[in-house]
Write a protein that binds this DNA or RNA. Structure first.
Lengths: 151, 151
DNA sequence: ATTAAGGTGGACAAAAATGTCCGATTGAAA
DNA sequence: TTTCAATCGGACATTTTTGTCCACCTTAAT
């Protein structure tokens, strides 16, 4: 239901959120989150242009969150790379009808609105603390030690 | 958030639901719902294989719903052409961890589940009757007369 | 039987999403 | 000041999605 790009962007900011006041190189993030390095580079550029992260260029540079994790929502991240579009009018191309949607598109838009809200009110900080002793990117019941040392 | 294919499939069955015991030619449905004829033909084939609609071949043939509108849900239609996939496990490719999802994917899967449920419990019949004097595919406050004669 | 209306399915084209590569530029550290 | 690790951004390749075309089969009506 969500594009790869969205998934990547969310993984990346989740990784950044764990240590958000220092820059992290794309390559580190990519290793940590198991995604294609060069594609992530593009995604990070989008996040940067949207103001979700800051880029620090030059040696020892990288990306860091532009704001504290509790100020950034999942929706901001998603909209930065692949905006959720509400259905404003019946997409049948008929001119001149009002703001009403037909029953079908009313349902679709309701679903979209609910999804939007779910992400609007979830901050990155909640990914860090939500279910107790669980890391933001991976469960720990089978401790994947190597994932916790990377960053 | 939803693919064109899903949108097309839903429009098509919404159109069929209005008069569901007779077959309707692909071309009629395509005109009625303003979508590419030949692409709709493919979508209808998917719906047919999935058992959502029946095909009647030969002259005066077409497609009709396989069941009464109150027996068919939006989810059935969606899953027939572009299945909604829940997140079963953390997609980082790590072996051997349990059924827990990390906080991020827990949120994503929650959103997917809610969407799934919204569509699981909405039948095609509800598109016909839901908001009173509104046609399933288009609002009527500016009566689009030509749309009501087509089928 | 012939014809016309209709679905079937394969092949193909176009567009969008995803993924890869690399030279240019930046800035901190040696 | 030179070097090196990093982002920047353009070009390109691949894959998936979307859209088009057409020859063929099926069926009802004439």
């Amino acid at each position: 239901m969500f594009s790869h790009t969205v998934e990547y962007a969310l993984r990346a900011v989740a990784a950044l959120a764990e240590d958000w006041e220092r820059p992290h190189a794309v390559q580190k993030i990519a290793d940590r989150t198991k995604m294609p390095n060069d594609y992530l580079a593009k995604v990070m550029q989008s996040l940067c242009r949207a103001g979700v992260v800051n880029a620090i260029r030059g040696r020892h540079g990288g990306y860091q969150l532009a704001q504290a994790p509790d100020k950034l929502t999942l929706l901001m991240v998603i909209n930065a790379v692949d905006p959720i579009k509400r259905i404003e009018r019946c997409p049948l191309g008929l001119p001149g009808h009002g703001p009403n949607l037909c029953p079908l598109h009313r349902r679709l838009d309701d679903a979209i609105r609910e999804t939007e809200n779910a992400f609007r009110y979830t901050t990155l900080a909640e990914l860090l603390t939500s279910t107790g002793p669980v890391r933001p990117l991976c469960p720990v019941d089978q401790p994947p030690a190597f994932i916790n040392v990377a960053l």
